[in-house]
């Protein structure tokens, strides 16, 4: 590679159509071949760092995990062929279904409010406001904190005896809630942490999407007598469709991989892989980690990993389908036209 390009630099091939008047035509033909090879191969060489890294850290683990999932392998013990044994075990394990259920409910109660609030915030920030940049930066601040720091602080806030939230609830006469040990209370608390952290990020993405919608559309809608709300539903939302789809996909994947928040919220350490005493907020990721690194059952953990991957794909496809159903609902012609322009 280095040789060919330096050759290239030193002696550019003669322009086509004019035979080289050299004494060594065979050398020139060789050079031409080299140059052609260079043009073809160089791009691959240039992208190869990415491809190699992707092979090493993306494809290989995927395939190796699939291979591992077919073996009965306890770390430190012996590895024996299990076929699909790990998967049949998985689908019979009540804690897998429990983890799946938790992942879905946690996903819904964290993602839906998160995206709705983000949309509202973005809409407000899209107006000409005083100190708009200040608000935009403030909004992104939670995203800049680490999961661990945020969760640890929230765990203190949600503390049973000395937590700020229970203290405030106490002021209005609500009994202390044992957030960590309750099942719904635990899930709600975790959803609040997730929402707090990701709302600003999604709002900024929406804001960027909104700013790419042409101002003319709003003017035209205003002239037609559309209210602010009408403008939001009939101009902003259709214009944001690709952005919304993107955030849905990203949030769904994030929700399926939820790990740090429930783990640290239930206290960290070996006990916490359980996701609460009755597994009340054990997500699929926690379940997988527990199989692999607490019980040292690497084969089973690999099976969980693959099942999770398939589930992510199913969830994403399902969400996209639901989101696209808007297309099939009949629209008033004006909106359709506006949407057409927005594209």
């Amino acid at each position: 590679m280095t040789t060919s390009s330096s050759t290239h630099r030193l002696a550019p091939p003669p322009p086509p159509g004019r035979p080289a008047a050299s004494a060594r035509p065979e050398r020139s033909a060789w050079r031409q071949r080299l140059s052609r090879w260079d043009t073809k191969a160089s791009p691959y060489a240039f992208v190869s760092p990415f491809l190699l890294l992707f092979l090493g850290f993306g494809i290989f683990p995927l395939i190796y995990t699939a291979y591992m999932s077919l073996y009965n392998y306890r770390l430190g013990g012996t590895k024996t062929w299990a076929g699909l044994g790990n998967f049949t075990w998985l689908f019979q394990d009540q804690f897998f279904w429990n983890a799946l259920k938790n992942t879905v409910t946690l996903g819904i109660i964290s993602t839906v409010p998160q995206l709705l609030i983000a949309l509202g915030l973005a809409h407000v920030l899209n107006y000409q406001l005083r100190a708009r940049n200040f608000y935009r930066v403030t909004m992104l601040m939670p995203y800049a904190t680490s999961v661990a720091a945020a969760t640890l602080v929230f765990s203190q806030l949600f503390g049973r005896d000395y937590g700020l939230i229970n203290w405030m609830l106490g002021l209005v006469g609500v009994d202390h809630i044992d957030w960590q040990n309750g099942s719904w209370s635990g899930q709600v608390a975790i959803a609040i942490i997730v929402t707090w952290r990701w709302t600003g990020y999604n709002a900024l993405i929406y804001l960027a999407g909104m700013q790419s919608i042409s101002q003319d559309l709003y003017e035209a809608a205003a002239i037609d007598g559309a209210s602010r709300w009408r403008q939001f539903t009939n101009v902003t939302l259709p214009g944001l469709r690709p952005t919304i789809l993107f955030t849905i996909v990203v949030s769904t994947i994030g929700a399926t991989q939820l790990f740090g928040e429930p783990y640290l919220f239930s206290g960290g350490g070996q006990q916490a892989y359980n996701g609460g005493a009755s597994h009340q907020y054990q997500t699929l990721s926690l379940y997988m980690y527990q199989q692999g690194w607490q019980y040292l059952q690497l084969g089973r953990a690999a099976a969980v990993a693959w099942a999770t991957l398939l589930l992510v794909v199913v969830f994403v496809v399902l969400n996209l389908t639901i989101a696209r159903m808007r297309d099939r609902t009949p629209k008033i012609p004006a909106t359709a036209a506006v949407e057409e322009v927005a594209r």
Binding site: L152, G159, Y162, N181, G267, G268, Q271
Partner: peptide
Amino acid sequence: AKLAQFSDQ
């Protein structure tokens, strides 16, 4: 006291 050992609380 209903506290999990080694938890923050």
